Amino acid sequence: MDQPRNRKTTSPSTGLAALPVVAPRVAHARFRIGDMVRHRMFGFRGLIFDIDPVFANSEEWYEAIPAAMRPARDQPFYHLFADNGESSYVAYVSQQNLIGDETGDPIDHPAIEALFEQQADGRYALDPQRWH
């Protein structure tokens, strides 16, 4: 016989009421490690070197973003070797703020050579000699 959906259940080991497990909604990543992307609003370009399935930075970092521009937490966030034409840095960007960069122009960042090799078509692939 089926149990009613709203009936409380108890844990056999503790006798305490069991709480339902609520998993966060997770969007699928549109980009992969090695993809070149461009920031939708600020225009800088970057090479993805890591992906968090949902927001995984500090609360202080998140709260520093103006509320009107603050991205949802339940989406992939990407770690980028970024290049804005004047300097290179590491950026942490939500999926909603990225678009693919199909220019084929290289990303100018000194850390890229440590992990990636540039392919003949201008794209980047992880250097298998550097995997561990």
Rank of each mutant, 00 (worst) to 15 (best):
D74S: 00
G104E: 12
Q3V: 04
E59Q: 03
G122M: 05
H109E: 10
D74P: 00
L47T: 08
Y124V: 09
T10I: 11
Q3A: 14
D121Y: 01
P24Y: 00
A27S: 15
A68F: 01
A72N: 08
N57Q: 02
A111L: 10
E102R: 15
P106K: 07
P53I: 13
A29F: 04
L19G: 14
A125Y: 15
P24L: 12
S13W: 06
D74T: 00
Q96V: 12
K8D: 06
N97P: 02
A64E: 08
L126A: 12
A18M: 13
L47Y: 06
R30A: 12
H39W: 08
P53D: 08
D74H: 00
A114H: 11
M1P: 13
A72G: 11
A64C: 03
R32S: 11
H39I: 01
R38W: 02
V93D: 00
A125S: 15
A91I: 00
R40I: 00
R70K: 09
L80G: 03
Q119C: 06
A56K: 05
S88Y: 06
H132W: 13
Y62L: 04
E60Q: 14
S94I: 04
F116H: 09
R130Y: 12
G100P: 05
H132I: 10
R45N: 12
Q118S: 07
R40P: 08
A91T: 02
G46S: 07
V93S: 01
D121N: 05
R30I: 01
P12Y: 04
S11F: 02
P20K: 07
Q95I: 00
F77D: 00
E63M: 12
N84F: 06
Q95M: 12
D108F: 10
I99A: 10
F81D: 02
F81Y: 15
E117Q: 08
A18C: 10
G43C: 15
A114G: 04
Y124W: 06
L80T: 09
W131P: 03
R32D: 14
L98W: 07
N97H: 08
T14Y: 03
A91C: 05
L16T: 09
G122E: 03
I107S: 02
F116L: 10
A27I: 04
R30K: 13
R32L: 07
T9D: 11
V93E: 11
V22G: 03
R30Q: 02
N97D: 15
P128V: 08
R7V: 08
E113Y: 04
T9E: 11
N84L: 13
H109P: 02
L19I: 08
L80W: 11
R73V: 02
R40D: 14
A82F: 01
